[in-house]
Structures are given as C-alpha cells and as structure tokens.
C-alpha cells in the first residue's frame, strides 16, 4: 500500500510548527539555531512531497541546492555564535539585548 503525498505534507507542517515551538522554548543560541534547522528541513520535506505529487523532477535539484546553502549557513551561523560567546561570555539569549536602536 502506498502513502499519499498529503501525509508527507502534513508531517512537514507538524515538524515546522514543532520547530517554531522549539525556538521559543529554548533559551540559548545553539538550541535555537537547531530549531531553525528543523524548520528548514521540514520545508524541504514539503517541497519534495508536493513536487512528487506534481511529477516534477527538477524540484530535487532545488532541494539539493537548499541543502548546500544550509551547510554554508550553518558554518557562518556557528561562527557568529562563537564570536558572540567570546565577546559576551554567554550565549543565553536573555543576556543578549543590544540589538536595538
């Protein structure tokens, strides 16, 4: 028995919302970053599911590029986290409130 694409889509939505919740529940930069990665991956899953339903092969190339970009993004993001930690001696978001005018 095969699985309808809609199942994959709903799963991706659930994962996405869990990512959002995780972002608000966590209190340190690294965990919040991981939450963002969850959201990104759920978006990939939705993309693949819908493309599969529409029989669109090129979508896989796009997902491939998204993964590549995500790798670059993770490298830069973690570097920033490290720099912040070095300067502030903390990665608790409650300690970081200088992002204002």
């Amino acid at each position: 028995m095969t699985v309808p694409a809609g199942y994959f889509f709903v799963l991706s939505l659930v994962l996405f919302v869990l990512g959002i919740v995780a972002f608000f529940v966590k209190r340190d930069l690294i965990s919040q970053f991981m939450a963002i990665e969850v959201m990104l991956n759920s978006a990939n899953l939705a993309f693949l599911a819908l493309a599969r339903q529409a029989h669109f092969a090129d979508a896989q190339v796009v997902v491939f590029f998204i993964i590549t970009v995500a790798a670059a993004e993770a490298a830069i993001g973690l570097a920033i986290v490290l720099v912040i930690f070095r300067r502030r001696k903390s990665i608790r978001t409650a300690d970081l409130n200088s992002l204002k005018g």
Binding site: F24, T93, L96
Partner: peptide, 17 residues
C-alpha cells in the same frame, strides 16, 4: 514606538511570526 524594540531576539521572532 521604540519601546517595542527590546533587543531580545525572541520578541523580534514573535513579531515576525
């Protein structure tokens, strides 16, 4: 409106959401 600008990333993310 500057009281909305707290500097906390979660507040911004919530506004975004």
């Amino acid at each position: 409106l500057s009281f909305l600008q707290t500097g906390f990333v979660k507040d911004y993310a919530f506004a975004f959401l």
